[in-house]
Amino acid sequence: MSEVIVVTSGKGGVGKTTTTANVGTGLAAMGKKVILIDTDIGLRNLDVVMGLENRIVYNLVDVVEGNCRIKQAIIRDKRYPTLFLLPSAQTRDKTAVNPAQMVKMISHLKDQFDYIILDCPAGIEQGFQNAIAGADRALVVTTPEVSAIRDADRIIGLLEANEIHRLDLIINRIRYDMIRRGDMMSSEDVVDILSLPLIGLVPDDENVVIATNQGEPLVGNGTLAGRAYQNICNRLLGRDVPFLNLEKGISFWARVSGIFHKN
């Protein structure tokens, strides 16, 4: 049984690639055989987030065009033996691949992997169509901001129009100090607006930047974001995990300095 998941958002910079890297790593750490596919042709990034940029020989476009066998393009992760990456091409553009080719390639991978996770590019053009073509379900990533939510709503409409009906919402970069002040929409507000089932709440955590600097996913480590991604993986496996009480995650000192910063 193989599941094809597309990670998408519409808007750029909300955390699709970080989510893909961490969810994929988390599932592999739990013993699943996982392949991550970067579908952002021309602007590849999943390889650097995973710390695998030095190992790329062939890429997605080479596979589709028949320049290499699919096995030659797939890179094994340095930490988990059941985690693999199919990188995107950096020197081509999104029209180098079409949705039919993606569907064909994914069907070849289906019997070899438990999870195929596609990192979707921003936007709603051909790159998006390529990424969703073979997907069974989608993780819609958004942040509690007007622009990201608006784009997510548009993406949800397009996914449904493309017959993808298993959609789950991840709200990223939540700042609980701002929610408390009434300056950020809460997760309830976002769920109310988008009416999708919630699968993850990820706090705005500076450890994400640190992990990306190092090319190390942070899923499963002690950080708040790492724990949040771990929970998403468990929920994907069908386990009922309560959402983190992130109010508690804010340190005493953050609270104290919060008091002094309130004018």
Binding site: E145, V146, I149, R181, G182, D183, S186, D189
Partner: peptide, 15 residues
Amino acid sequence: KSSREIAKDRLKILL
């Protein structure tokens, strides 16, 4: 009105 409420109201109309 808090900026949270403003955002929510704007989004509802926009969507």
